[in-house]
Amino acid sequence: MTLLQLNHVQRTYNANSTHPVTALKDISFTVDRGKYVAIMGESGAGKSTLLNIIATLEQPTGGQAILNSQDLGALTKDDAARYRREHLGFIFQHFNLLDSLSNRDNVYLPLVLAKTDPAVMAQRLQPLMKRLQIAQIIDRFPSEISGGQQQRVAIARALIAQPDLLLADEPTGALDSNTSAEILDLFDDVNENGQTILMVTHSAAAASHAKRTLFIKDGRIYHELFRGDLTMKKYQEEISDTMMTLTNGGE
């Protein structure tokens, strides 16, 4: 069943100035429910822009982005905010936890905004804490825990509202390779439990965890790979090769 559908999405910055930047030219693809998709591309290719459009943080200047049969471009700003907290979860490179809230309250944030009962919030947190191994640090503050732990808290925050779609922008970008591997295993686990994931990444190792990888170049989809029955190692090599040709401008 289709969850996300992009039709000829286009995004131009500073359209009225003398130097308009077209970050996205023509992007079309669909994602089915329960899938795990990686997006790769060179720096400046428009990956973050694409993610921000799906996240309703930005509006497309052309085309359509449809999530769950809702046209995201048609939402007003306030509706977009509500839609965001009800249907989407985010994970960022720099964790983006609020330093004024304890880790527990950071995780609760989306539920509080949705006016959830405190008892229900505690109930929902319970299994997440176990799975993400954050029970020990849940009552500390973000500035008192390590980067990997902060990212776990951020994942808990993204998952607690049981979003339709989990969006991740270079979630392992600020972590060392060991911690990255742990986080990526968590993603696999989450996906196996039925969570749809869309992840932007620079690393072939990270992308190899996904079932499908989209390559973006110059604001268009340049290529697409499916993991199929390949082993992770083989798949990762294939991704690296594709990135290589993409970078060298070859076909």
């Binding site: 943080l57 509500r82 985010f90 960022f92 609020l98 989306p110 949705a114």
Partner: peptide, 15 residues
């Protein structure tokens, strides 16, 4: 920084 994070978590810009 707080502004940005709160908006990502689903608060509208106005709120």
């Amino acid at each position: 920084y707080r502004f940005k994070t709160m908006q990502q978590a689903g608060l509208s810009k106005r709120e």
